[in-house]
């Protein structure tokens, strides 16, 4: 049997590449550890000395503001030194290969690589080639996975709903292009959420999404009925020009979350969004800013979750 590339010989988390294939115990370990770090982020001195002397390289081959910034804050709160590399305008544009870039950074005594890349699998490639004391965290690869976003979504759900075992969670919109949706679905099913729903037009749902254990709805109103959690996804506007969708207005009419549609979910339902959100495309402003929205707390929780992931992998 091939070993899970994320785990070391003792079954501990050495790299975080995907939620898929991670055992329930490790997901819970990350969420519990994040809960303790959330305490740190509420203090006057929001810093612990765990990663003092370690170097964290943020390797972003694809643009990102929120994810890169929260990784940077998380690393700084663990007392690590953070180096941000914007590779799009760096050596790779001069023709250097991915592994050569990493080998050079390794020669600068890196301990942790946080990698975002437009190609699915790039963080796996790096993880296979780093030295034993170096660790890789996937910050989003192609359409494949975005595990720390999935984990912070799970953390947010547990924070507001406590018990996963009686929840109905709907994920709405462009699941096809979403690495967030995949990571979240794997996490929810691993943690025992009995009903996960995928709501969207046929053209924006991945083929065979049912095999991941979700119920598919093309009608948003029936899909939202009695949901505890509604996760809205960003409609990737760059896809609007293709044949997948008629127009943003048309999309909003059928799959945009309005107060009127949200009223079909449970009265205490929470609304989440991984950001960046398009107001008036997938979500109405009154919902985004309304009492059910936990979109900004998600960002705050993301720092504690990333602190947990970094300190767990760097210690293994």
């Amino acid at each position: 049997m091939q070993r899970n590339p994320q785990l070391n010989a003792s079954g501990e988390l050495q790299h975080l590449l995907s939620i898929e294939g991670l055992p329930r115990e490790i997901l819970l370990q990350i969420l519990d550890t994040a809960e303790s770090f959330a305490g740190v982020t509420e203090r006057e001195v929001k810093k612990v000395p765990l990663l003092r002397g370690k170097s964290v390289f943020n390797l972003f081959f694809e643009a990102s503001t929120r994810t890169r910034t929260t990784f940077e804050i998380a690393a700084k709160r663990l007392s690590a030194d953070v180096i941000n590399l914007n590779i799009a305008v760096s050596s790779q544009s001069k023709g250097e290969s991915l592994l050569d870039t990493v080998a050079n950074l390794s020669a600068m005594q890196a301990d942790l690589f946080v990698v975002r890349h437009a190609s699915s699998g790039a963080p796996y490639l790096i993880a296979r080639h780093v030295k034993p004391h170096e660790h890789v965290i996937n910050a989003g690869d192609g359409r494949h996975a975005h595990p720390t976003q999935g984990l912070l979504d799970l953390y947010t759900i547990r924070h507001y709903k406590q018990d996963f075992s009686r929840l109905t969670v709907a994920i709405v919109g462009d699941l096809l292009h979403s690495r967030v949706a995949r990571s979240l679905i794997h996490g929810l099913t691993t943690l025992g959420v009995p009903e996960v729903r995928a709501i969207g037009p046929q053209t924006l749902l991945p083929a065979g999404v049912e095999s991941l254990g979700v119920r598919v709805f093309h009608d948003m109103r029936s899909g939202l009925r009695d949901c505890d959690v509604v996760v809205m996804l960003r409609l990737q506007s760059e896809r609007m020009n293709g044949a997948l969708l008629p127009s943003a207005q048309e999309f909003f009419k059928h799959y945009g979350l309005t107060a009127e549609k949200l009223a079909l979910a449970r009265p205490d339902a929470i609304v989440m969004h991984p950001g960046p959100m398009n107001r008036g495309v997938e979500i109405d402003s009154s919902v985004a800013d309304g009492p059910h929205s936990v979109i900004l707390p998600q960002v705050t929780f993301g720092i504690a979750v990333r602190m947990a992931v970094m300190s767990i992998v760097a210690g293994n």
Binding site: E12, V48, L50
Partner: peptide, 23 residues
Amino acid sequence: MDIAFYRDDYAKEGLKHDPKRTR
């Protein structure tokens, strides 16, 4: 208080599994 984030053997032992939240 849980001192997990301040231990001096993190480099050797890693983070312990169930740190409690300090309050």
